[in-house]
Amino acid sequence: MNAHGPESHALPPALSHTELMLFQHLVEAETGIHLSMAKNALVANRLSRRLRELGLGSFAAYHAYVTTRGNEAEKVRMLDSLCTHETSFFRESRHFDLLREHVLPEWAAQGAQGRRPRSLRVWSAGCSTGEEPYSLAMTLLEAFPRESGWNLEIVATDLSTWAVQRAEEGLWSMERARTIPPHLLRKYMLRGVRSQDGLMMAGPEVRQPLRFARANLHVPATWPQGRFDIIFCRNVLIYFGAEARARVIQGLLERLPETGYFFLGHAESLIGITAAARSVSANVYTPRPGPAALSRE
């Protein structure tokens, strides 16, 4: 995830090893995300603006401010600042090819035969600025257009409130359109004119199945309710500590039926983490029937 919120380019104050450890422990406790000690410059750069705005003289003082009881809004703002948002439309396109060529046609046939409900529910967990869920929406709408009578819902969540707001806005630079197939770009996106020249906006049809919310994968109580046919959680869990990653994966798999699909990013795998899913393609899994215990890495 690479497009992040605005930040100052002024030289940040020094962040000591001890101060970095304070934020390392806080972020992991709140989100499951592990900040390595190599992230010193990143943390200093992304948080230094708030130090200046609040008139605080050190990162230790900002940590004390963030952890003051009742200061949840600032804690959320801090987490927003530290989130990474590298994404693109149809990223890891083979996943969308699998849906388009195999999964969705099979489900369409089963729906036509009355062997499954004519509905589909998808969760984009870690949606960043929206490119992934809108790519999913375009893929699903091509397989199940409105006149097909299928009910489609795509729930898109992210830890970052800033990213969720950007995703719901559905407005990007035209440069982001490079990875959208031309026929889908013409069909589902609107080109900006006059004051919005150089921008594109998601059209009403592709917006219709989408629902956006903030969710913290480390805190299941914040997750969207119910079960899903497909869960995309790609390039998110690589930032988690091993125990937090295992817990989240178990919880996500429990939200899928045996016929569901779980998509991870190209650098992610369930090997050594769980026996509760079987691989069906690179970084794509389906839940195994029956209970299966997690194994620690």
Score class of each variant (00 low, 15 high):
residue 216 N to C: 05
residue 217 L to F: 04
residue 234 R to V: 11
residue 216 N to S: 05
residue 235 N to Q: 08
residue 239 Y to K: 05
residue 212 F to M: 11
residue 235 N to S: 09
residue 239 Y to L: 03
residue 239 Y to H: 13
residue 218 H to C: 15
residue 216 N to W: 03
residue 234 R to D: 08
residue 213 A to N: 12
residue 213 A to G: 13
residue 220 P to W: 02
residue 215 A to M: 11
residue 240 F to I: 04
residue 230 I to S: 07
residue 236 V to T: 10
residue 225 Q to G: 14
residue 239 Y to Q: 05
residue 212 F to P: 08
residue 218 H to V: 08
residue 219 V to D: 14
residue 224 P to S: 01
residue 241 G to F: 03
residue 215 A to Y: 10
residue 218 H to Q: 14
residue 235 N to V: 02
residue 220 P to I: 05
residue 226 G to A: 07
residue 239 Y to C: 06
residue 214 R to K: 14
residue 237 L to C: 08
residue 223 W to F: 09
residue 231 I to Q: 01
residue 238 I to D: 07
residue 234 R to H: 09
residue 213 A to P: 10
residue 230 I to T: 09
residue 238 I to W: 05
residue 220 P to S: 09
residue 224 P to N: 03
residue 237 L to S: 02
residue 220 P to L: 04
residue 223 W to E: 00
residue 236 V to D: 07
residue 218 H to E: 12
residue 240 F to G: 00
residue 223 W to Y: 13
residue 224 P to R: 00
residue 241 G to H: 05
residue 222 T to I: 00
residue 241 G to K: 05
residue 229 D to Y: 08
residue 234 R to Q: 12
residue 227 R to Y: 11
residue 213 A to I: 03
residue 230 I to Q: 07
residue 218 H to G: 15
residue 222 T to L: 03
residue 231 I to M: 00
residue 217 L to C: 02
residue 218 H to I: 06
residue 227 R to C: 15
residue 227 R to T: 15
residue 232 F to N: 00
residue 229 D to V: 05
residue 227 R to V: 14
residue 235 N to G: 07
residue 228 F to R: 01
residue 241 G to C: 07
residue 229 D to L: 10
residue 221 A to F: 00
residue 223 W to V: 00
residue 232 F to Q: 02
residue 227 R to K: 15
residue 225 Q to D: 15
residue 214 R to S: 11
residue 225 Q to C: 12
residue 224 P to K: 01
residue 235 N to Y: 03
residue 232 F to M: 09
residue 218 H to A: 15
residue 228 F to V: 04
residue 217 L to G: 00
residue 219 V to N: 12
residue 231 I to L: 07
residue 223 W to T: 01
residue 217 L to R: 00
residue 215 A to D: 11
residue 216 N to D: 11
residue 221 A to Q: 15
residue 213 A to W: 05
residue 221 A to E: 14
residue 228 F to E: 05
residue 234 R to A: 08
residue 234 R to T: 10
residue 219 V to W: 11
residue 232 F to D: 02
residue 237 L to A: 09
residue 213 A to Y: 02
residue 225 Q to S: 14
residue 240 F to N: 07
residue 230 I to F: 12
residue 216 N to Q: 04
residue 219 V to H: 15
residue 220 P to M: 04
residue 232 F to L: 06
residue 230 I to C: 09
residue 226 G to N: 03
residue 231 I to V: 13
residue 237 L to W: 06
residue 223 W to L: 08
residue 228 F to S: 03
residue 215 A to L: 10
residue 242 A to H: 13
residue 221 A to M: 08
residue 214 R to W: 06
residue 223 W to H: 14
residue 231 I to G: 02
residue 240 F to W: 05
residue 213 A to L: 11
residue 212 F to Y: 13
residue 214 R to H: 12
residue 234 R to N: 03
residue 234 R to L: 09
residue 233 C to T: 11
residue 233 C to R: 10
residue 241 G to V: 03
residue 213 A to T: 08
residue 217 L to Y: 02
residue 233 C to I: 12
residue 224 P to D: 01
residue 240 F to H: 06
residue 218 H to N: 14
residue 221 A to I: 02
residue 237 L to G: 04
residue 240 F to L: 07
residue 226 G to Q: 04
residue 232 F to H: 05
residue 222 T to G: 00
residue 232 F to W: 09
residue 233 C to E: 11
residue 236 V to M: 11
